[in-house]
Write a protein that binds this DNA or RNA. Structure first.
Lengths: 122, 122
DNA sequence: TGCATAGCTGAGCATCTGTTCAGCTAAACT
DNA sequence: AGTTTAGCTGAACAGATGCTCAGCTATGCA
């Protein structure tokens, strides 16, 4: 399939494809990964810069980067003793932007029309 | 982009907002929910129809619907003894469509340029 | 060679998630 | 009222997730 023309309609999702979608969307389902991707969207940087930007231990960042690498969302290349990470391509940045804009829209609508639906478990 | 007016740039994600994004994206991070949303995207239907369509127990579907309701992604209204669920609005359908198209793109790119990155745990 | 910096990895653990199960409420029908 | 159908809910349990910790590899520099 040539990715652009297959035009899969979301209503005929077989279990296997739903699993793949869920697997990739999981990348955006953890605050730490959202922030890592957000930081990378501003420009490529090393693991330590990343860790500093998001306030995590470099080990934890490295673990998440491995996951994101396996999902094909980021790439890393060695530069001297550092490893510089970046988003895999522009589409990943778009995915992040669209996720953010959709969330803003949905949450705004939520607050406007169904205030009781906010669980606010924090 | 037409709908987003606040235009939050993804690189200045504070921890709180990243948490909100992750929370909502979690809706797309489970195969069962992806399929539920996919089925609803084809048209509103009852819990039992939903359970039948995705091959789950109605209780499990009901649990997931509660989660999706709290996230503001679906709405339910009683019709006789049934409760008919539907996507909250068109934006939710778009979110689903974009998630699918992005996943197809990313996975296609993955298969093309980085075959070793496929863990294929299934 | 020795040492410091940058990053990776597996193990362990606390927490979260998604399902099943049992039991409950609500609506229609006799 | 009693029964059936449709759906909701809390408890409980297996499995997944995300972190920390300790130790490892790799690069650069003296």
């Amino acid at each position: 399939m040539a990715h652009g023309d297959s035009q899969r309609t979301p209503d005929q999702l077989d279990a296997a494809f739903a699993g793949v979608v869920a697997e990739t969307m999981q990348a955006l389902a953890a605050p730490s990964r959202v922030r890592i991707l957000g930081r990378l969207h501003a420009g490529a940087c090393s693991v330590n810069e990343l860790a500093d930007a998001v306030g995590m231990e470099s080990s934890a960042v490295s673990h998440q980067l491995r996951l994101l690498r396996h999902l094909g969302l980021v790439v890393g290349s060695r530069d001297g003793r550092r490893v510089v990470y970046d988003l895999y391509d522009d589409h990943v940045g778009e995915l992040l932007e669209q996720a953010i804009s959709h969330v803003e829209h949905v949450r705004a609508g939520l607050a406007r029309t169904a205030p009781e639906a906010q669980h606010a478990q924090a």
